[in-house]
Write a protein that binds this DNA or RNA. Structure first.
Length: 521
RNA sequence: GGCGGCGUAGCUCAGUGGUUAGAGCAGCGGCUUCAUAAGCCGUGUGUCGGUGGUUCGAAUCCACCCGCCGCCA
């Protein structure tokens, strides 16, 4: 019985439209979600926006909108972007939704009742740039290290604090007992040393806010930032509003997050859940950043390339492929427009796309698309010198570990290159004149190799996979494909027949080659 | 400033103690024509950021330095 798989991404600040960094995370999580579905696991894939922030209400005021109108508009912008990228999320949570507010209030009340929240008069130095209080040891020459040009303000107010410091030993035990809780391992080491060095209690409410979730036991205060945002992972599956749904999906099997927010997900979040008596997630999967021409992609830098331009021009599949091939998901990677073109042409147009074109064309040209007497054929020639089982095993491990760039490398080098070499070796274009029976068998083998490739690439390029799969009358039909079918030698269940779309008698290219202009650095 | 990560061929990345450090792309030479001027074959003398150390042996462990990046609740 396959286990359910509940996967989330970080929720995004809706201050601007999504950039390539957001896209990287969503695509990586989407690949995992699609991969799990292909393995037969029931998947719930949650994404969303983080809306209960001071910045959001400020921005809304600037635009003359009330906050809810503003965040709803921005939610549409994000949803549209994810739809264009073919993100297969099952749900999109906005933290301004009632289900989230109810769940948050239930949660904070429980933690309060269990004695992990206390009130304290707090006097601190507040940095307006960071929108946060600074401790003495954060300061450099009496100023905020990030905003040395601004004066710090002395602010005093009564806030509620979460007793994070009481969870030090329990957290360390968690990391010890569940070594897979944080991946990759370097991130775990980071968190362990952070927690070992000691945790301070955190302020989790603010006074005098007009936007955000009221604290149920003290309506003059509102829940602040992380204690609200992290809870989307439970409220998104019904915590506080639909307990049956919550029981079905919780705990989360994978939280996909960026390395900048590791500590909140690996220390604060499990502590919060412990405080509320809720089960801890199975894994926090940390990804790196996409660096554009050496500079970090950032909302405040202003992006040179809008990723959506590439998506619109070359398609979601191409964008998804190139980004994940170029940038290792678990670490930082580099991306540029030139790199995009190079990888697109080499891997998609020349290698995969051309393999598809030449195979389909030969079937049409020599046999009118009908490969008779190919029913029941064990098509094992293309990968005959490959240990398909161990290949499948290793590829699957790469997928589970989110090493997508390496997984794609394996598919291209071990499968697609082999198929191209097979054509060169068997020369079906000569066989068409000398040995038509043999030619038919060769083409059937190629078709079945394309089927294997289509299965493996479908988490990455769902549209392309379907196009390839639909180019022949394979059985079972596309909706029934399973990841593990890739690892077994295929036997044809019908006489193969080309059903690919053609234009003026020619096969439509999967990925039209991008013509590069003369010279541009 | 404190803590942490990264720095491997022109480019993007593998490789974490053991023979002459690898792949793809780009480049160069040849073959081929089914195909999107695509494919196949051949071709890689890199101080593995620097210095010092541990070791019989280090890209791989330790220290310091330089550069880039993240966090500092």
């Amino acid at each position: 019985m396959p286990e359910k798989f509940y996967i989330t991404t970080a929720i995004d600040y809706p201050n601007n439209k999504p950039h390539i960094g957001h896209a990287f995370e969503k695509i990586g999580a989407d690949v995992q979600a699609r991969f799990r579905r292909l393995r037969g696991q029931p998947v719930y894939f949650l994404i969303g926006n983080d809306e209960n922030t001071v910045k959001v209400s400020k921005r809304a005021k600037e635009l003359g909108l009330d906050p809810k109108t503003y965040v709803d508009q921005m939610a549409e912008v994000f949803k549209t972007a994810w739809r264009e990228l073919n993100i297969s999320n099952d749900d999109f949570i906005q933290t301004s939704e009632e289900r989230h507010w109810k769940g948050c209030q239930k949660f904070i009340q429980i933690v309060y009742d269990r004695g992990y929240i206390y009130k304290k008069a707090y006097q601190g130095l507040y940095c307006e740039g960071c929108e946060a209080f600074k401790t003495q040891r954060d300061l450099v020459d009496g100023r905020c290290a990030q905003h040395p040009n601004q004066e710090l303000q002395v602010v005093e107010e009564e806030n509620y604090f979460f007793a994070l410091s009481r969870f030090r030993d329990r957290l360390l035990a968690l990391y010890r007992e569940r070594p897979d809780f944080i991946a990759p391992e370097t991130r775990k080491n980071e968190v362990v040393s952070l927690v070992e060095s000691g945790l301070e209690d955190v302020s989790i409410t603010r006074q005098n806010l007009d936007w955000g979730i009221p604290v149920p036991f003290d309506p003059s205060q509102r829940i602040y930032v992380w204690f609200d945002a992290l809870l989307n992972y439970v409220t998104g599956v019904g915590y506080g509003t639909d307990e049956d749904k919550f029981r079905r999906w919780w705990p989360a099997d994978m939280h996909v997050i960026g390395k900048d927010i590791t500590r909140f997900h690996c220390a604060l979040w499990p502590a919060m859940l412990m405080a509320a008596g809720i089960e801890i997630p199975r894994r926090v999967q940390v990804h790196g950043f996409v660096l554009l021409k050496g500079a970090k992609m950032s909302k405040s830098l202003g992006n040179v390339v809008d990723p959506m331009d590439l998506v619109t021009r070359f398609g979601a599949d191409a964008f998804r492929y190139v980004l994940l091939r170029l940038c290792p998901f678990t670490g930082d990677g580099e991306f540029s427009f030139d790199q995009f073109i190079t990888v697109y042409n080499a891997d998609l147009a020349n290698n995969l796309g051309n393999l598809y074109s030449r195979t389909v064309t030969m079937c049409l040209k020599y046999f009118g698309g009908h490969l008779e007497n190919t029913k029941g054929l064990v098509a094992n020639e293309v990968f005959d010198d490959l240990k398909l089982e161990s290949f499948h095993e290793e590829l699957t491990r790469r997928m589970v570990d989110c090493e997508y760039n390496l997984a794609l490398g394996m598919i291209w080098q071990e499968l697609l290159d082999r198929a191209n070499r097979y054509i060169d070796r068997t020369r079906p274009f000569e066989l068409a004149k000398t040995d038509r029976d043999r030619c038919r068998i060769v083409l059937a083998n190629l078709a079945m190799a394309l089927r294997t490739a289509a299965i493996y690439i479908s988490p990455f390029m769902p549209t392309t996979a379907k196009t390839i799969y639909s180019a022949f009358n394979f059985s079972p039909d596309y909706s029934g494909i399973r990841w593990d079918d890739g690892g077994t030698v295929a036997r044809t269940s019908n006489d193969l027949r080309v059903t690919a779309e053609t234009e003026k008698g020619k096969v439509r290219p999967l990925f039209p080659r991008i013509q590069v202009e003369a010279q541009s650095a």
